[in-house]
């Protein structure tokens, strides 16, 4: 579960950098009090947790289908190498989101627009689920990690720890107005995907080479 926590803490920054503008736009769309903002964020994060649970189930099924033999393990190791490279590319070359459009979940925006869902709390919950179901490099990295656990419970626990790691980054959002250096924080957060990518490349390399584990 160390991997899940490291993954969550490091990629949570990337989530913040990518999807932060979406959450900020959504929380500051109207003039709301800090209390209401915190309540909306709680509903959003709860919805996000549901999305993560969905990924945990998918990861378990994927693990059952692929991760049962040597060939499957090699596929996962190769996936780690590809994901590691993708994470590094993502951290260096993908520009910071100037708007909420940078978040992969924003393609599903029409489904949760105020025109369709009028109630703010319900809308924030739907947004949370959608942002938790998105496909981005850190999520795919989590999928390969969870699939390796080999059981549904392990996969759920992996995604729960991953969720807690990423969720920490969203706590300051009710105070977003006071964060004058958001862009610098978001950039640092984006850079965190570089060491994360290096870790995945190392992990894939060690798996293929048949060496020992990271802390072994």
């Amino acid at each position: 579960m160390e991997t899940a926590l490291i993954l969550g803490l490091t990629s949570g920054g990337a989530c913040l950098a990518t999807c932060g503008p979406l959450v900020a736009a959504f929380l500051t769309a109207e003039q709301i009090s800090l209390k209401r903002s915190a309540a909306l964020l709680t509903v959003f994060l709860s919805g996000r947790l549901l999305g993560y649970i969905g990924w945990a189930v998918v990861s378990w099924l994927l693990g059952q289908a692929i991760f049962q033999n040597t060939a499957g393990m090699t596929i996962f190791a190769a996936a780690d190498l590809v994901l590691g490279g993708w994470l590094i590319y993502y951290g260096i070359y993908r520009p910071l989101g100037h708007s909420h459009e940078s978040c992969p979940a924003s393609i599903l925006k029409p489904l949760a627009s105020p025109a369709i869902i009028h109630h703010a709390f319900f809308r924030s919950g739907i947004w949370g689920i959608l942002s938790g179901l998105q496909v981005c490099p850190p999520f795919l990295a989590a999928v390969t990690g969870a699939a390796r656990t080999g059981s549904l419970g392990g996969s759920l626990l992996f995604f729960l720890v991953f969720y807690l790691g990423t969720g920490l980054w969203f706590i300051p959002f009710p105070f977003i107005g006071t964060l004058g250096r958001f862009r610098q924080v978001a950039q640092v957060a984006r850079f965190l995907t570089l060491p994360l990518g290096a870790y995945f490349i190392y992990s894939g390399f060690i798996s293929i080479a048949g060496g020992n584990s990271f802390y072994g």
């Binding site: 803490l9 640092v188 957060a189 965190l192 802390y215």
Partner: peptide
Amino acid sequence: RRWTLFPWAVLSVVVVGTAIS
């Protein structure tokens, strides 16, 4: 110039990595 922020990312990884391991 954004690379001047990279040491903050290294510091974060090092602090978290050290605390966990």
